[in-house]
């Protein structure tokens, strides 16, 4: 469950807030598209939701934890329950693909045997297991993106956030990823995907959070959530 109440975000050194008075609620196990033109605040909202920054005003609850005044230890534990596919992949260049993907499980203290099994399962599913010993710098954009997706999925997160997760994928891979998101939702994971890809949104119609100039443009009055349900077939 994600709940934002009048949340604003003003990065240090910036004169005005990049997000203003956001109020939204996403129940556990639901899917949302995060839409809006460039500069609307999608990445800033994702930064808030991945706990890379705290809101400068308002109340923010994630997975049952009040984030606004949470301790560093609480935030650390919360981050381990969140998977994130960044637009720029954020892979550690000095490590192998396997070590990058295994990191979330290792941070949770999983045994090396379990880590290896889980990591290779997800790498094989994403068709990059043969690259396990390679460094990210030697991979193509699509391969790096699949590695980042594997790292986000491996911990079976309760909340999955993805920023343009299909922009370097082929159509078949993108469709497969959407199917994975659907499976995760069925297992109770909340999934929020930011995208510019209208074709993808048409392919998987779902409720949306539409941002415009740092505020929410549409409100779904029915469930009190600032969302817009896309109705493309």
């Amino acid at each position: 469950m994600i709940r934002l109440l009048n949340v604003s975000m003003m990065p240090p050194g910036v004169g005005q807030p990049v997000l203003r008075n956001l109020t939204l609620s996403v129940p556990q196990g639901e899917f949302r598209w995060l839409l809006g033109p460039s500069g609307a605040g999608k990445s800033s909202l994702l930064r808030l939701l991945t706990l890379e920054t705290r809101p400068s005003a308002g109340q923010m609850d994630m997975l049952g934890v009040s984030v606004s005044h949470a301790s560093r230890a609480t935030l650390r534990n919360l981050r381990r329950r969140i998977g994130f596919v960044p637009q720029d992949y954020r892979l550690i260049g000095e490590w192998t693909v396997f070590d990058n993907v295994a990191l979330p499980l290792r941070l949770r203290g999983a045994s090396e045997r379990d880590t290896r099994r889980e990591a290779f399962a997800v790498l094989e599913w994403l068709d990059v297991a043969h690259l396990a010993d390679k460094r990210p710098g030697t991979l193509s954009g699509g391969e790096q993106q699949r590695t980042a997706i594997a790292r986000a999925l491996i911990g079976r997160p309760e909340l999955l956030l993805a920023d343009e997760p299909t922009n370097a994928l082929e159509d078949a891979q993108a469709r497969r990823l959407l199917m994975t998101f659907q499976e995760l939702i069925e297992m109770g994971t909340t999934v929020i995907v930011a995208t510019h890809n209208e074709a993808l949104v048409r392919e998987a119609p779902a409720a949306s959070i539409v941002l415009q100039d740092g505020t929410i443009a549409n409100t779904d009055a029915q469930n009190g959530t600032s969302t817009r349900r896309t109705e493309h077939s």
Binding site: I92, P104, L107
Partner: peptide, 13 residues
């Protein structure tokens, strides 16, 4: 960048 990646994936200080 690497330190921040690890931190935001939930690594303790």
């Amino acid at each position: 960048k690497a330190v921040e990646i690890v931190h935001f994936l939930g690594a303790g200080d």
